[in-house]
Nucleic acid binder design. Structure first.
Lengths: 144, 144
DNA sequence: TCGTTAACTTGACTCACTCCAGAAAAGACG
DNA sequence: CGTCTTTTCTGGAGTGAGTCAAGTTAACGA
């Protein structure tokens, strides 16, 4: 797990000011991958005390824009954030409980897939979401 | 373009009652693929006069559940609906203007992709979204 | 240490979407 | 055709993630 000074270095690397809320958000996302905004706010407040939700939204947007975080929002779910960036991996989502797990991309470089007909679009990324049922929900469904 | 009686047959085929709003919604989605809910409400009202937004939401949910429509919601966009179902095709989305185009799936059958590591999930569908820039926005960006 | 500028706080607000209760219409059956 | 049951539609209030705006605070380069 990276330390506060690691996060500080990350922030300086993208010319963002180093502030306590930003460190706390980065740390929270590293500790809780795929956490939604509300959970992140909760974790940040546990570490720092009072922080406005607006600040967290702001920080999340700044960090996402800077490429330090990635925002994912599967259908029917609120926005979630993860700290794994740059390796173009994908996600598998449970239809029943919404759990998310990472799936490595076979090629590793974006776009990892070519469209059969791109309609003239200039494609730079292929996002893949696998839909299915997680082990817990599969077990629960069988035993019911 | 299918006619009202085609839509009626579709509805009966999934044991749903045939009502004017349903025909109008089906027709609207066929005419405007990838339309958002608000546009659909607008089109339906043009054809039928006053229809509550609640009725349209209800109809959309019923038709989606019955498999007559498919709901898509790319990040940063409101829910959209399309009438192409059953052929497991994908979408390319413009980062700049949000335009959506269909992309045929290479294999045609779900799931068209296998995950490298499924974490024990039972995967039934692989959803692919290509991100890029549409021809119009590419041209606009160059000329600016 | 000082000034500039980015970041944070507070609080109101928007907008897609949902919930609810009652009214109306569709389909089934005699 | 008329009645009954079930489903759908209406209108309005409510929910919740996320945004906007104005003023204050704090980071950091000079």
């Amino acid at each position: 797990m990276p330390t506060a000074s690691d996060f500080e270095r990350l922030l300086r690397g993208v010319s963002l000011r180093v502030t306590a809320p930003r460190i706390a958000v980065l740390s929270a996302v590293h500790e809780h991958p795929h956490a939604d905004t509300d959970s992140i706010i909760g974790v940040v407040r546990q570490n720092l005390g009072a922080v406005s939700h607006q600040a967290v939204y702001d920080v999340l947007r700044a960090l996402t824009g800077a490429g330090l975080l990635r925002r994912i929002e599967p259908q029917g779910s609120v926005a979630r954030y993860e700290a794994r960036v740059g390796d173009n991996h994908h996600h598998v989502v449970c239809r029943s409980c919404g759990a998310i797990a990472d799936v490595d991309c076979a090629t590793g470089a974006a776009p990892c897939l070519d469209a059969s007909d791109d309609h003239g679009f200039v494609i730079d990324e292929a996002e893949v979401i696998y839909w299915g049922t997680c082990p817990e929900c599969t077990t629960a469904a069988k035993s019911s």
